[in-house]
């Protein structure tokens, strides 16, 4: 057992919850759950297997899972250190950086996609450099899908992790340091175990957000089966002609999301984040 980890202390008497909280809590739950029930009721379950095993559906699902996985990894690689800097560095100007990190949460995803298009698209300054120096064009590639997903899901990881780092505090780290542990050892043996639940919940949130990404992807990456057409994009397109088919496809997303959240460290998702 790690000292200071968020455990339920058995010696503490449970205070219990004011009963009155149950009413708004149930309303909140209903607001989220009922539309999903409506979706299931509406779905033509007899056609479900045929619809979801079609070539376009399978290809879109596979692409969605792959790109969301890579995006989540990128979020961890870059968002993790970013969260550490925000929570611990104490550098001046952090107060200005935090709102920037949260921008993708506020921006309509389509606008986020346009922003990417104007930056690393063929006519954007980043895009010109890439094309001139490396002969790379980003839009309409799978890399563009990953970039769009990473853009929208990064804040989820950063916010979860920064919250965990702040809650954990620096006391144990200071103690470890005074006992002679090097910064690397402190990070590996103290900080990391303390914030692991926060990392877990951040990863689950980021993955879920990447999986459902639509607006930024369509604006930046386009939509082509096997290359850029993720499941949400396919759902949107199928909906134009076949609403039942679109509903069935979106149920696949629901199932995948539930599986991810249930299997991938459910306790982490309930953790500090």
């Amino acid at each position: 057992m790690i000292p200071g980890a968020p455990v339920r202390d058995r010696h503490v008497v449970g205070v219990g919850l004011p009963r009155v909280l149950w009413v708004p809590a149930l309303v909140g739950l209903a607001l989220i759950a009922l539309p999903v029930v409506g979706l299931v009721v509406r779905a033509d379950l007899a056609r479900f297997p045929e619809l979801v095993t079609g070539g376009a559906a399978l290809s879109a699902l596979g692409l969605s899972l792959r790109t969301a996985a890579v995006s989540t990894l990128l979020c961890l690689l870059f968002g993790g250190p970013l969260a550490a800097v925000l929570a611990r560095s104490g550098a001046p100007g952090l107060r200005l950086i935090r709102p920037i990190v949260l921008l993708p949460l506020v921006l309509p995803p389509v606008v986020g996609g346009l922003a990417l298009l104007y930056t690393v698209g063929r006519t954007g300054f980043g895009g010109r450099v890439l094309e001139l120096w490396f002969g790379i064009t980003v839009p309409f590639t799978t890399a563009a899908v990953v970039l769009a997903q990473t853009f929208v899901s990064m804040p989820f990881l950063v916010v979860s992790l920064e919250g965990a780092l702040r809650t954990a505090g620096e006391r144990y780290e200071s103690v470890a340091a005074t006992l002679g542990a090097s910064p690397a050892t402190v990070f590996r043996r103290v900080t990391l175990p303390l914030v692991l639940p926060g990392v877990g919940s951040g990863l689950v949130l980021a993955f879920a957000r990447a999986l459902g990404e639509f607006g930024a992807t369509i604006a930046f990456a386009g939509s082509l089966q096997g290359t850029t057409q993720t499941l949400p994009l396919l759902v949107y397109q199928v909906r134009e002609v076949d609403v039942d088919g679109a509903v069935a496809l979106s149920l696949v997303l629901v199932v995948v999301a539930v599986l991810v959240i249930a299997v991938a460290r459910p306790r982490a998702a309930e953790g500090l984040g």
Partner: peptide
């Protein structure tokens, strides 16, 4: 052999006006 099959005609226009297609 398009680079993308867009969800509506306006996004096709946007891909051309933005210079990406």
């Amino acid at each position: 052999r398009p680079a993308s099959r867009e969800p509506d005609v306006k996004s096709v226009v946007n891909k051309v006006t933005s210079g990406n297609a």
